[in-house]
Write a protein that binds this DNA or RNA. Sequence first.
DNA 1: CGAGAAGTTGACGGCGCTCAATGTGGGTGG
DNA 2: CCACCCACATTGAGCGCCGTCAACTTCTCG
Lengths: 247, 247
Amino acid sequence: MSEVLPFHAQHLKAACSNCSVLELCLPIGLNGAEVERLDTLIVQRVKVKKGTALYRTGDPLRSLYAVRIGSFKTSMLSVDGREQVTGFHIPGEMLGLDAISADEHACNAFALEDSEVCPIHFAHLEKLAQNLPSLQHNLNRLLSREIVRDHSMLMLMGNMNSDERLAAFLLNLSQRLSIRGYSSKDFVLKMRREEIGSYLGLRLETICRGIAHLRDQGLVEISGRNVRIQNMDGLKQLLAGCHRSPR
Amino acid sequence: MSEVLPFHAQHLKAACSNCSVLELCLPIGLNGAEVERLDTLIVQRVKVKKGTALYRTGDPLRSLYAVRIGSFKTSMLSVDGREQVTGFHIPGEMLGLDAISADEHACNAFALEDSEVCPIHFAHLEKLAQNLPSLQHNLNRLLSREIVRDHSMLMLMGNMNSDERLAAFLLNLSQRLSIRGYSSKDFVLKMRREEIGSYLGLRLETICRGIAHLRDQGLVEISGRNVRIQNMDGLKQLLAGCHRSPR
DNA sequence: CGAGAAGTTGACGGCGCTCAATGTGGGTGG
DNA sequence: CCACCCACATTGAGCGCCGTCAACTTCTCG
């Protein structure tokens, strides 16, 4: 197909305007002219190889990063070196929001596969946002949405048992993939069991057992990292009454 | 002492300029002229009686609220009506940040005692922030700080046992009170055991037992809601190696 | 002063953690 | 291309922390 495009299309500067996750990312709701001004901030996209860090705790905040291709985990290290995964991030999602607080990154970001991000120089972003109210509003909303997401995680950690947490995790991932045009029923987990466990406040063995339970109920089929959701409604019902004791 | 003030001081319009938590709140780092412009947003302070809601889940976002006097809990309700406390808020802290995401409040805010807040009309705030870069930056930082705080809570929920969580809770509260000029060693809990438990992902009985454990170790003395920290360093050491298994 | 709410403590059981053995798949080098 | 290797995943056995239930005490407030 590429031959129908003018050759120089291959050399177009990295830009939001021609990005596949335009409508999910920072530019949400911006008009054409506004997106073009945002484009001036994206100097060049950056590739991140599987397993390598995009940034680490303590690194000074230079840019926020929009995931373009691939996926990331963000994690904090406890005093004794234990890892706590704080999030998984797929295309169209923003990395580094927690760094604004103290001008340095408060977590690590690792690529779960070969990936690509759009660095957005934060000082420039703030400056541009002064003149683009809708961009500023988007940034506020992005930050607020992360807070809402974290509160849901707290509720998950505080109120759900292991099977419910796993079901919630799978449904959430399914939905986010679906929005991006991927199948909501068939997808591949890019992270290890241990990382899922850390994210959900469980041990990796408990994740394995949870997978077995969901399989035994005919809700999902998971072999290795391949997921097939067989009974979406059943999974959702598992969460409908997420509680420890009936009544 | 009030007689040395001109009488009309009692009638001063509600304003950040003369607020006791000025340097902890939204105006951090703003200069005099900037604070005066921020003042124009605070139409009038609002009193909230103990046990009543400042806002509830689903209420449209009109204002953010800065706590001026007293304290609040924020909480979400799960599908089956179980409460998850997402935070406790004392003077100088902001309420309602999670509402920016969807223009409606994502949690409930209840006063834990007779309290007073400064409503900050959000649309006006965004408008003013366009012209006051440092105000905008403060808002960004406030939002980001909340994200960092939530991530610490996730780490607490994922990696700490019950006694460690309780110690972390007490130390955190102690530190925040200390910054506001209160004693870091003697203070009063404004919330019930059940609310502490919900916040920490534990049952109220477990909180009671945790209190007994800390008491038996001579770290704190808690009778009813009165807390006296007897060994601050000991408490901190309890957290220094926050883990499930030694090694 | 009385009644209801909040807090404390004990007994007991279950969920999820720990430890350990085994299975499996992807990547590398001969 | 295959064999090997190592990281990752799975499953079982046993146990400990914390949840549940219950009885009782203390506090709060009208």
